[in-house]
Design a protein around this nucleic acid. Structure first.
Lengths: 300, 300
DNA sequence: TTGTAAGCGTTATCAC
DNA sequence: GTGATAACGCTTACAA
């Protein structure tokens, strides 16, 4: 011990990992650190990881398939013990089979958990919140508040989660004998500026919705800002709801009704399941978390 | 090549790094992923890292000295090529010398860049925004808008950045022949809930400030929310300004005047300097970025 | 208890 | 150019 101290001996984890064949590292792919939803998820994952003795390797893919592939390769070379995947290809409808195959090949050697996504045609360990139910809850809430004209704003039709929400929206309307109208559904992206633009378009309509469900909090806030700048009161003149319940929704004024995906739980669960997979324990393939409707000022 | 493909040969970066004595990994310590400022900084750092062929190892210390030490140790064991440090001990007045020494010892072996912090008594490569100037700009702006009673909300006196801002606040008041009043300065923490609480206290004062400078956007938003819930109009009844110009400030309603620290630039510069240090190039010890006053609705 | 040797998957060196 | 070999720093198994 004295001699360790004296020579300031520094253990080398690389050499140790080379022998042990485990690194204690978990690779985490996510699409965008500027969307608070993701930092929240890996906040939860990190907490769980610390308890389990793992350490996270976060990789911002910027939703770019190439970067995803690069990182995937990098993480394999670095011998991570497991992978958590979010966004990008696992949320893509029409995902090129080669990209799916890439993940499938890796999965043969390294345990993988997907958050809010799938690998079409291949069974996979997944953690997700029930976004269908979440959407249903919020549409029903709007209907219960007396709204009959409900719009849907943002997202992209090439994204599986958007399609799932859209379906829930449509079916919930129908279940309430309300008509689904194409012109009340506007897609684009997931950003605040998208929310602004799409809302502009809505406001020029003669017969516009009285309530709007947005694909996420960012789009909702963009929509709110446009509405407010046009002199509309929220929720009196138009009700607006978001999704994800990021910290933005409670920060806003008026505060934004949103559906919590339990982002931290999502990360924790994924990490928990991954650690079991690494220990070769049997784990349920699919873990579904219940969404949580958080009603705030923007809809009542 | 055929045989590589056939056997699905997977190169092992650990073994390679063991020989090369470089891993291409940069350790990044930061205090809190739920404060958007930090994801913004490492967004910039990541972009730079990708260009330079490095990859980031992000470590959320939750501002806990012990966790900092653990991660520091972990990153050394893992043989990272360099370190970027934010928050925690490098922002602490009265930082225990042993914690400083720990970093100094590491610095002998691994290049380190500090963002917005110092290692008291030890020269160090640092990147920072001029928070003194940033504060001055915003106080001057409030004064120019006609305010004579300006308060200071949030932060903590054990944090170097808070002290720096407080000093700038005080001196700018004095330079304008305005009196500094103790009861107009309230400290606490850096959270939205802190902003709410401190604002409550302000509002009970008979002679309260007409404008408030907050330590960051989160505190500012908390303060705004309390003010609004008390029926005050912003900025007519009370002007409020934040700091950091996170995405929250432009999302708010009314939009929040704030000082941009150029968070992405901060991360990019740190990464750039670090890579030069790793290549043993000479680099200037201190890089100061100019803050940017972003005037929005909350102060005019 | 202490010590020695083999091996992890690379890279680099030095003969050939 | 090709091919064998040592070395990187650690762990583990086995021998002394």
């Amino acid at each position: 011990m004295a001699i360790i101290e004296k020579h300031k001996f520094q253990p080398n984890a690389l050499a140790r990992s080379l022998v042990n064949k485990k690194t204690g590292m978990i690779g985490v792919l996510f699409p965008d650190s500027s969307n608070m939803f993701f930092p929240e998820v890996f906040g939860g994952a990190e907490r769980a990881a610390q308890k389990l003795g793992y350490t996270l390797f976060l990789c911002n893919t910027f939703s770019d398939y190439n970067r995803e592939s690069e990182y995937l390769n990098l993480l394999c070379e670095r011998q991570v013990d497991g992978l958590i995947l979010m966004g990008g290809r696992i949320n893509s409808r029409h995902c090129p089979p080669s990209l799916v195959q890439e993940v499938v090949d890796i999965q043969r050697k390294i345990p993988i958990v997907l958050i809010n996504g799938t690998l079409p045609g291949h069974p996979c360990h997944r953690v997700k919140t029930d976004e269908y139910l979440g959407t249903k809850l919020i549409v029903q809430h709007l209907i219960d508040r007396g709204h009959r004209q409900i719009g849907f704003l943002g997202g992209s039709e090439v994204t599986t989660t958007t399609v799932e929400k859209l379906q829930a929206y449509r079916r919930t309307l129908e279940a309430n004998q309300l008509s689904y109208r194409n012109e009340w559904v506007r897609m684009g992206s997931f950003s605040m500026s998208c929310g602004r633009q799409l809302m502009e378009a809505f406001l020029t309509m003669s017969n516009r919705p009285t309530a709007i469900l947005c694909i996420n909090d960012y789009v909702a806030i963009g929509a709110m800002k446009t509405a407010i700048s046009r002199g509309l009161r929220i929720p009196e003149d138009i009700a607006i709801a978001g999704f994800d319940d990021t910290q933005l929704s409670s920060a806003m004024n008026p505060e934004l009704t949103s559906v919590s995906q339990q982002s931290e739980q999502l990360g924790m669960q994924a990490m928990l399941i991954l650690s079991k997979l690494i220990q070769k324990e049997k784990v349920t393939k699919l873990t579904v978390l219940a969404p949580n409707l958080i009603i705030r000022q923007s809809t009542q």
